[in-house]
Amino acid sequence: MKTANPGRHLLQSASRVFRVRGICTTRPPSDKAPAVRRFWRSAGVDSRNGKYVVTLDDRPIKTPNGAQVQLAPSQRTLAWLMAGEWETQKEFIGAHSLPLTSLVCRSIDGLSDTATRADVVDKLLKYFHTDSACLHEEYPHTLVELQQRHYTPIVEWTRKAYGIEISLTSDMFALKQTEQATQTLRKVLTEFSPLKLAALEKATMAAKSLLIGLALVEHHVSAEDAAMAAQVESNSQTQLWGHLENAHDIDNAALRQILGASACVTIGA
């Protein structure tokens, strides 16, 4: 049966957020990708067999592989936010404007497979040995200050949360974490749900840091805090050389969209 109408305020709120942030498509994609027109009148959320499903004209959405997207009872808010993504599409569908749906589909189509999950864990642990949050330069002063402000709290939280030692260095080629720390994190990541692992994968790749991604999906830091940590080096350069309006603004928005989506899907996951 359908969920109660009061839940629609979440859909309306999500619609306003996505419109304000300008991530709805009003024109077809480039010639390299086929343009897919909006084919539904309205998006919503239904409760079916104890699960939440996002619907387009009362038809549940499916993953690219054809699996029906079903969300747990604890993920009601996520379901409405996903519906908001679809509601705010314009004439053509933009894949970049469906970040929540993309993560959920990744968790179902890819990360429900044991071998794929193991490969993703291996890939994420490689970031641990080149982690930007573990690279602490000694100059310039602006960079050192930003590293202390944004990197150090995340490193300290990781040490305490998982009981591991984390090496810091100013030389990326000298950075090497211990086998004990690596195996401890491997165990942690292996126990993540498919959806949480999908969120961590996306956040880590965007931030170039497993530690920042972990702090985000474990809700130790906000998406904005994670973005500031991920942009320590670029923000240091901006302070020295100035702001490039178009390039920096686009990068800032894209990063926050990815990190925000990664944080949202892990609520109740």
Score class of each variant (00 low, 15 high):
201 E>P: 02
190 T>N: 10
43 A>W: 03
178 T>K: 03
18 F>A: 12
265 V>S: 01
71 L>Q: 02
39 F>Q: 00
164 I>M: 05
59 R>D: 04
36 V>T: 07
140 P>H: 13
217 V>W: 05
46 D>R: 14
130 T>H: 09
138 E>V: 12
228 M>A: 15
111 L>E: 06
264 C>M: 15
76 R>T: 06
221 V>K: 12
73 P>L: 10
232 V>T: 03
81 L>R: 12
255 L>I: 10
195 L>D: 09
22 G>Q: 00
72 A>R: 12
255 L>H: 07
140 P>Q: 13
101 T>E: 07
21 R>N: 13
129 H>Y: 07
192 F>Q: 08
266 T>Y: 04
131 D>M: 04
171 D>P: 00
250 I>Q: 12
269 A>F: 01
137 E>D: 09
69 V>A: 06
238 T>H: 08
74 S>R: 14
68 Q>L: 09
42 S>I: 11
217 V>A: 07
44 G>T: 10
181 A>M: 02
99 P>S: 09
30 S>V: 09
107 S>E: 02
234 S>L: 10
193 S>T: 15
93 I>M: 04
137 E>S: 08
171 D>T: 05
222 S>Q: 10
193 S>W: 02
177 Q>V: 00
159 R>D: 10
84 G>T: 09
224 E>Y: 14
141 H>Y: 06
181 A>L: 01
92 F>C: 10
267 I>V: 14
228 M>T: 12
224 E>V: 15
130 T>C: 01
166 I>K: 00
212 I>D: 00
235 N>L: 05
219 H>Y: 03
49 N>Y: 14
259 L>D: 04
175 L>P: 00
207 A>C: 08
246 N>Y: 06
198 A>L: 01
202 K>Q: 13
262 S>A: 15
245 E>A: 15
164 I>G: 13
55 T>H: 11
238 T>N: 09
163 G>P: 09
232 V>R: 02
133 A>G: 00
24 C>H: 10
156 E>S: 11
64 P>W: 04
231 Q>Y: 04
117 R>S: 05
217 V>Y: 06
240 L>E: 14
203 A>K: 01
180 Q>H: 10
191 E>H: 14
159 R>H: 11
181 A>P: 04
88 T>Q: 12
97 S>Q: 03
156 E>Y: 06
80 W>Y: 15
124 L>H: 05
113 D>S: 09
14 A>W: 03
46 D>E: 13
253 A>V: 06
45 V>N: 03
160 K>Y: 05
188 V>I: 09
32 K>T: 12
70 Q>H: 03
163 G>V: 08
32 K>Y: 11
8 R>L: 09
69 V>D: 02
166 I>T: 02
15 S>V: 11
51 K>W: 13
